Structure formats: structure tokens, C-alpha cells
Amino acid sequence: MTRASLDKQPNEVAAMFDKVAARYDITNDVLSLGQARLWRREVARAVDARPGERVLDLAAGTGTSSVPFATAGAYTVPCDFSLGMLREGKKREPWMPFTAGDATRLPFADEAFDAVTISFGLRNVHDTDTALREMLRVTKSGGRVVICEFSHPTWEPFRKVYTEYLMRALPPVAEAVSSNPDAYVYLAESIRAWPDQPGLARRLQDAGWEKVAWRDLTGGIVALHRGFAP
């Protein structure tokens, strides 16, 4: 399996990410024109991890997104359902407690974390609403969720240019730099099919999160959503 279908069967998505694990981070930097690093910094600010807190980083992949939380002093658990990604991460950061897990059936106790975050992974979960409820289950009362995900550019002319880039420019660029370019065709298609900013906010609220808000990054290419557990 080289490319997941948009019905997002877990075994297909996991297999796809297994194949791109080795060059995943560098490919993302190239395809995002360097913006991926800026987005990670904004996620770290939004999560605001503190010493003594427990942070769950879902779809953590190789752990690149998890390092800032651990550096801030929080006990950080990088969790992913791609074993290939976890193995690559463990080679790079052997001190981190990489954990295999499905976002729709998290292997953690109720209210185990002060904060839960997921960057560019919720879009690939086969049941988004179940995953949002699971995140709430493992978050302490008053704790927070931060979701960083591709979204819809807010300026119409730019949105058209961006869509053209996704479907026409991204695949050939991915072929030049990725170990599995077909995976990035799927990623482009999944971005186009994903809800806009208000749509994701409503799904967070329906799952039980409170004080839901979002902030656009890079003109709405990416949005940061945050909510709090009751």
C-alpha cells in the first residue's frame, strides 16, 4: 500500500506513513516552503507546556513536534499509529516515551493529561468525532486541546492559487524529495476535503470542548484551534 484512500482506513494510512518516515520532516519543510517550522513554533506557544505538566502529542510521527514540550519541562508522550514513524523517532530521540496508539481508542486513563495536541494528523483519522471525544476523555478538567491542521485560506484569490499548488505543483515536488510521492497526492486531496475553520470549531464543541476558538496562520493555509475541557 503506497497511498491511502480518502475513506481513511487506519491500516492504509499507517502503511502510507511507514513508507515516508525516513524523509518525512525534510519533505514537509520543502513542500511548505519553510513554513512548517513556523507552524511548530506557534503550536508550542499555544500549548504553553509547563514544568510538571503532562502533554500528549498525537500523530507525533518522529517526535519533532514533541521536543518543544519536553524542553519546556513537561512530561511529553509522543503517540502515533505508524510504527515506522515511531521507530524513526526512537532512533532520533531515544529518551522520549514513544507510544503506539490509535486516536479513536487511546491507550491512556481518563484525565491523564493537562494538554493534548495534534498537528496535521486529525485530518488522517478515520473517525474525527470519536477522536475529539477521546482527546477530551484523557484531558483533565480545565485542561486544553490544541489542534494544528491545514484549513481554508481566507482570501479568495489566494485560495485559488493555493488549490492549484496543491493539486498541480505539490505532486511533482513530492516526487523529487519524498520516498513515497503518492502519499503526498493523498495528502493534497485530504486537505481539500477537510472542513473549514468554523466547521472544525463546531465539531470540537459537539465533542464537548468549551471556549473553542481558532487563529489563522499563513493566511488560513493552517489554522490553530484550541478548546478547554469542562
Rank of each mutant, 00 (worst) to 15 (best):
T71E: 15
G101C: 03
V125D: 00
G61K: 04
L83N: 06
P153D: 14
I147L: 15
E111V: 00
F108V: 11
H126P: 04
R133T: 10
L56C: 05
P78C: 08
T163A: 15
R133E: 11
T128A: 15
F158T: 10
R92S: 14
K90T: 07
L86M: 13
S119K: 02
N124Y: 04
S82N: 14
L132M: 14
A100S: 11
R92N: 14
R133H: 09
E88V: 03
G63Y: 02
P107E: 12
A103D: 05
G101R: 00
S141C: 02
R159K: 15
A59G: 04
V67L: 13
R92P: 08
F158K: 09
T163F: 06
T163M: 08
R105L: 03
G89T: 05
Y75S: 03
T71G: 11
F120D: 05
T62H: 03
I147C: 10
V145H: 08
A100H: 13
T104E: 12
N124Q: 09
C148H: 05
P153W: 11
P157R: 10
P153H: 13
L83M: 12
E156M: 07
D102S: 07
D102W: 02
T99Q: 07
Y162L: 14
R144M: 05
W155N: 13
T99S: 07
Y75R: 06
C79I: 01
P97D: 05
F150S: 06
R105K: 06
A112I: 00
T139D: 09
W155T: 12
V145I: 15
T139A: 10
R133F: 06
V146F: 02
D57S: 05
T163S: 14
E164K: 15
T76C: 04
E88W: 01
D102L: 07
P107L: 10
T163Y: 11
V67S: 05
K160M: 09
F81V: 09
F150I: 08
V55I: 13
R54P: 00
E134R: 02
V138W: 10
E156N: 07
F150K: 05
T104Y: 04
G143S: 11
V67I: 13
K91W: 07
A60F: 07
F69R: 01
T154R: 11
G84M: 07
K91P: 00
A60L: 04
T104I: 09
F150G: 03
V55C: 01
S119W: 00
P68W: 05
G101Q: 01
H152W: 10
S66K: 05
K140A: 06
G121Q: 05
